[in-house]
Design a binder for these strands. Structure first.
Lengths: 124, 124
DNA sequence: TGCACGTTTGCGCACTCATGCAAGTGATAT
DNA sequence: ATATCACTTGCATGAGTGCGCAAACGTGCA
């Protein structure tokens, strides 16, 4: 597919996988409301009904997928949300998706090119 | 948390769950490059190395999560990408995340309000 | 009515994953 | 050095999921 929208490169299963668990989303939401103020593992764990070892694993998963950043201070590890990176990823994905709709790809799929024009603005 | 960014409402585990499988993402990417031209289950299945019954299940999952729209024409079911809905969801989520960073929430987390200003522009 | 086609669903299997507990690691304080 | 604190890492278990095969379902055609 001769397309310039880079959609398949932006569709990362690992990122969505990290965001597919309710407890991980609660962790992300809680950290996001901290206004860039980092939180330690034990602080995050106090707000959740799961074992602190599980929280540690969830935080590591969110860090590995690029959602959170970790920083060691003394004997505690403080996590914070990578706001700009995450928002940028989501916006880039939104742009790539809408770019595909407007016919960025070549001739392999657009077997009737007129439909592109007739459906602009009328979709979902 | 007295926050007006609606972050936890936008963080839907089911949506991310639907996007967490590589084969489902290949289906979505393939359909997105069709420029709003619907594809039937069997047409989608020809481009994937998995059984058509599995493809049918994947398409249903993507439809249930709001990513795809389905329409029956004769004895075939044609799926298409809900470009605007999906892009809008992602942009709304990006806005909500960045809104949290800039201190939309109240006093429960921002225990030193000065850090909000000093970290603007210097994040991740 | 009978048949062919496209799609969906039941079922079993293999695999992944979230969870809790316990043990291990690293850093600080006494 | 020893103890304590914060976090991480095996390990086992139960739940969830992707997969293929076969049967069922729905639709259109002869």
């Amino acid at each position: 597919m001769n397309c310039d929208c880079d959609l398949e490169d932006r569709l990362d299963p690992d990122l969505f996988r990290a965001l597919s668990d309710p407890n991980r989303l609660m962790i992300l939401s809680g950290l996001a409301h901290c206004c860039d103020e980092p939180r330690s593992v034990s602080e995050v764990a106090t707000e959740l009904p799961i074992d602190i070892s599980v929280v540690s694993r969830h935080l590591s998963a969110l860090r590995d997928s690029g959602v959170l950043a970790a920083e060691r201070t003394g004997r505690s590890v403080r996590y914070r949300v990578r706001y700009s990176a995450l928002a940028g990823l989501l916006r880039g994905l939104a742009d790539a998706i809408e770019g595909c709709q407007q016919g960025c790809c070549g001739s392999d799929c657009a077997d009737d090119s007129g439909s592109v024009l007739t459906t602009v603005g009328g979709g979902d």
